[in-house]
Design a protein around this nucleic acid. Structure first.
Lengths: 191, 191
DNA sequence: AAGTTTTGTCAACACGTGTTGACATCTTGT
DNA sequence: ACAAGATGTCAACACGTGTTGACAAAACTT
């Protein structure tokens, strides 16, 4: 199957599979596991619902595939350790929270209440998030520092999901961000 | 209606209303708005589902009533400002997260993804949480400091909801708590 | 060009949901 | 004691869900 065929074919299983995955990622990041119906996802991808079960096995496996494809901490935390607080606070407060690098956090937050998504989140979070994050941090108590920083990040993201402007004025938001930068840096600092 | 009657009557509307409210609070704090069915709540209260609609009007109004009855920040933050970080960190890390004073936070977290519960949370959170919290804190930038501290509290609570032991050993958890205390105190400090 | 496999659509299913109205039973006032 | 109102149960409803199997059309193989 040549690249040309990949683009010109009317029917293309790998392409629709990818479309399904993209649509699922988008919707899960906005509404969470339970609130999203497979029909919404399929409609967004432009295909029938039944293809989800055919290609992924079911809703649960689709969710696992989405989590698997999300950007890991290596893509999120790249940069200097000294800049951590400043860099992440800008990302958390200024960037859109439902797509881009923060997508995976949104999904974790909005799907935490689901009995079926929760175990997947716990497993993936440990394997692909806390583990690499702690390793990236290094030093003493790396796991503790990673978990605390991750908790703070989730909290801020959640408040932005509930209310995008955090219920603060633009001027207040700047002060919020600066304060958050200091707090995050302190959370991961080795002393 | 004498107190004796209140206890001896087989049928007591105010009592069943209270039972319904208690059961709803308990279940919403454990599973969130969407995941809980009215039949579960009614079964826990020992009555039929239809009474929910009769007494509260519907699921949405029941949720609003639950949020209304939850302990406010006055019950959560009572104490000295200098002890804030230490006190709250103990509460967040050591106490059970699904009942007691933290119930309202659990409900906010687990129901944030619901399209119907989210507006109620936003409204109640502002009226009965951030507002009083900021007033309790006092000083410059009180709203900013309150929001940041609340974000951190939610993040930690969420991680405990996903995994009660935070995925840490008992020894690590102690260090996590100490670090969290410092971070929280720094979040609300006035300088 | 015919036959076979892949890819997508459609209809139906079994289930659970919140809500509603009719009915039964307890409680109270006269 | 009897009627009236309050309180609770039951059955059904309309709807949306994830999943499954039969069928149609496209794409590939020979």
């Amino acid at each position: 199957m040549t690249p040309t065929e990949l683009a010109t074919r009317k029917r293309n299983s790998t392409a629709t599979r990818a479309n399904l995955l993209d649509a699922a990622t988008k919707h899960f990041a906005r509404q969470g596991y339970d609130a999203v119906s497979l029909r919404e996802i399929a409609a967004e991808a432009g295909v029938d619902v039944s293809l989800v079960s055919r290609y992924f096995g079911g809703k649960e496996e689709l969710f696992a595939a989405v989590m698997d494809g999300c950007p890991g901490p290596d893509r999120i935390f790249e940069g200097e350790h000294a800049d951590f607080g400043d860099r992440i606070s800008r990302m958390l407060v200024d960037e859109p929270v439902v797509d881009g690098k923060l997508e995976v956090i949104s999904i974790m937050i909005l799907s935490a209440s689901s009995v079926v998504a929760s175990p997947i989140i716990r497993r993936m979070g440990e394997e692909r998030f806390f583990g690499p994050f702690a390793k990236w941090l290094g030093g003493a108590d790396a796991a503790v520092r990673a978990h605390l920083a991750a908790s703070i990040m989730k909290g801020v993201s959640m408040d932005r999901l509930i209310q995008d402007d955090l219920g603060l004025s633009a001027r207040e938001r700047v002060r919020y961000r600066k304060r958050l930068a200091r707090v995050l840096q302190s959370a991961v600092s080795e002393d």
